[in-house]
């Protein structure tokens, strides 16, 4: 494990904690896309099938369980918690899941490293994770009025992806045979989706004003 990978995992964990903190303490999910959260739950459920078949390390198993439990809890909170669900902005969060899920699944059937159920599910989860943030970005663009925690949540997710790219570069130069085109390209696409958001995030940070996205 290198420093970029560890920092990436920690920012990913921090993003989830920020979101849970917002939901749990403020009892509000305003500005949070349920669609994106449901897609993440699907991403983790399909990627971590290897929990049942392979043991990598205690760290690996624990982190996988944390991401699974937290993503399903967030979905549960937004859908079912009697106070939190009232703050869900259903009319603005209109992105359709299958626009993303179906193409990703078809792509995973065609472009994968091995044609097995576990492998296709794993590849599908990579493609889906790359685009799962889209409903959230659309929602941010629509509501424009972004609270600090939501802004920090998206920023931390973007930071996590950027650090994973540094991790891949590091591993490519330090580990023999470390070449993973599917992981790299989907990860790069995912990070690029944050570029626009990052630009406005840093602008607002630099000028010390509230984050607002242009319509």
């Amino acid at each position: 494990m290198n420093i970029f990978r560890l920092a990436g995992d920690m920012t990913h964990l921090a993003s989830v904690l920020v979101l849970l903190l917002k939901i749990h303490t403020i009892k509000s999910c305003a500005g949070i896309s349920l669609k994106t959260q449901e897609l993440y739950a699907l991403v983790f459920a399909t990627r971590y099938l290897d929990l049942f078949t392979d043991y990598i390390s205690l760290y690996n198993t624990l982190m996988k369980l944390i991401f699974l439990v937290s993503s399903f809890s967030i979905v549960w909170y937004i859908r079912h918690h009697k106070i939190v669900r009232r703050s869900y902005d259903k009319d603005q969060d209109t992105f359709r899941h299958y626009f993303l899920v179906l193409p990703c699944f078809l792509l995973a059937l065609v472009i994968n490293e091995k044609f097995t159920v576990k492998e296709i599910m794993w590849t599908f989860s990579l493609y889906l994770e790359a685009v799962a943030i889209l409903p959230q970005l659309v929602l941010l663009q629509r509501t424009r009025n972004i609270d600090n925690l939501t802004g920090q949540y998206v920023f931390l997710l973007g930071a996590y992806r950027s650090l994973y790219i540094l991790n891949w570069i590091y591993r490519y130069f330090t580990e023999p045979h470390y070449v993973h085109w599917i992981t790299w390209i989907s990860g790069l696409v995912q990070t690029l989706l944050y570029a626009d958001f990052f630009y406005y995030y840093f602008q607002s940070w630099k000028n010390n004003v509230k984050l607002e996205l242009p319509a």
Binding site: R5, D9, D50, D54, K64, E113, K118, W122, T183
Partner: peptide, 10 residues
């Protein structure tokens, strides 16, 4: 792919 190095990532 499954069972190789990239699978230690999350």
């Amino acid at each position: 792919s499954v069972n190789d190095d990239v699978h230690d990532e999350l």
